[in-house]
């Protein structure tokens, strides 16, 4: 079946990748979460789909990080400290994927989709309260900063906290990224927001920076294992980047509620499909 896909790969893969990149950027969930289930539906093995996806994650995260970094919102120290944990997690995750059979991977992916669905369902209630008290370890790490908020027209100062807890959780987020070939941006943003107390803008942009390096660590393992096939990877990477580029521009014109509702339906459908294949369906 994979050979059948390869024979007309561009015609099939490119539009799917564009849609995945577009929806991923619009929802803020990243392209991989749509792309991998779509590729497996085409008959591509889940391990190969994961490998191809993680390569395109490098492209989308680096592309969007380039704009954020130049806006001076990204916190490089937070990024570098946490990358120590995410890259090790990603390498471990990628090795686990290589050692596993397909079925547990479908199950794990289904559970991540389900988790993302729940996160999206309950999202949007927490708001950032500044002025947290820093613990000694986080202060030693110099994890604080300030940025100019254009919407509010003022300087926002912040101090991160609980870096020790954030680091452990980020190792896990890196492992999910390496294991399943996704950016796991939603998980990283949650850790930044809820555990480390970073303002939403800082957590989103810094997470983007971390995702690129984390994806590279995973992609290296998959490349060395011969799973990054240019036949499939080239049209997918190109499509996801173009889709993401368009998605970030459309975002401002569509209402958040419409995007959210649409994405809730897509996520639950894909979650059920992947869980079904993990439990007993065709893999």
């Amino acid at each position: 079946m994979a050979a059948a896909v390869a024979a007309h790969s561009f015609v099939l893969l490119f539009p799917i990748a564009v849609v995945a990149g577009f929806v991923g950027a619009m929802s803020g969930m990243g392209g991989g979460i749509i792309l991998i289930p779509a590729l497996t539906l085409l008959g591509i093995g889940i391990k190969q789909a994961i490998a191809i996806s993680i390569l395109s994650v490098i492209a989308t995260s680096s592309g969007s990080a380039s704009a954020y970094v130049r806006d001076h919102i990204t916190n490089l120290k937070v990024g570098m400290f946490l990358e120590m944990f995410t890259i090790v997690g990603a390498i471990v995750g990628a090795h686990l994927t290589l050692a596993m059979t397909a079925r547990p991977l479908y199950l794990a992916f289904g559970l991540v989709l389900l988790g993302s669905w729940v996160a999206l369902l309950v999202a949007g209630h927490a708001s950032w309260q500044g002025g947290t008290v820093q613990d000694a370890f986080t202060r030693w790490l110099e994890l604080e900063g300030a940025y100019y908020d254009q919407a509010h027209g003022r300087l926002i100062e912040y101090k991160a906290r609980r870096a020790y807890f954030g680091a452990v959780l980020m190792w896990g987020a890196g492992m999910i990224a390496g294991l399943l070939g996704i950016g796991a941006g939603a998980v990283k943003v949650l850790i930044h927001d809820l555990v480390m107390g970073l303002p939403p803008k800082v957590s989103t942009t810094t997470s983007n920076l971390i995702i690129g390096v984390t994806a590279l660590a995973g992609a290296s393992v998959y490349l060395a294992h011969g799973l990054i096939t240019p036949t499939l990877a080239a049209p997918v990477a190109l499509g996801v980047v173009l889709g993401a580029f368009a998605g970030t521009r459309v975002l401002v014109r569509l209402s958040n509620q419409a995007v959210r509702r649409f994405f809730l339906v897509v996520l639950i459908a894909l979650a059920v499909e992947m869980l079904y294949r993990g439990i007993g369906g065709a893999v």
């Binding site: 680096s62 380039s66 704009a67």
Partner: peptide, 17 residues
């Protein structure tokens, strides 16, 4: 540094694509 990193990332992805 932000400008350098941002430009580096942008050029890398653009050249690759």
């Amino acid at each position: 540094m932000d400008t350098l990193v941002g430009t580096l990332l942008l050029i890398g992805v653009a050249v690759s694509m």
